[in-house]
Amino acid sequence: MAKGKITFEDIDQTVNVPAGTRIIEVSEKIGAGIIYGCREGDCGTCITHVTEGWNNLTEPSVLEEKVLKENMASRHDRLACQAQVLGDCKVKPA
């Protein structure tokens, strides 16, 4: 099975995950500092900054793009409840 390594820079922890795992699934389990609101891509609370490996996450959907824009997210920000890990990447709370 394809795997990816995601590093949460705020707690300096790296986790090996199966490809397709959403960031939220991992960050909640290890207690990273990303916070969550609706958990369904609507509220923008879980905006997360991708510091490395932007291309190793699934493409944002049109809806996610819209929420990111409305919340004035900066470049390389994603919603942790939507983005799925495809390869190695590093993230931290936005």
Partner: peptide, 9 residues
């Protein structure tokens, strides 16, 4: 901390 495996969480 090393690298941990998702399955171990």
């Amino acid at each position: 901390k090393g690298v941990i495996d998702f399955a171990d969480l």
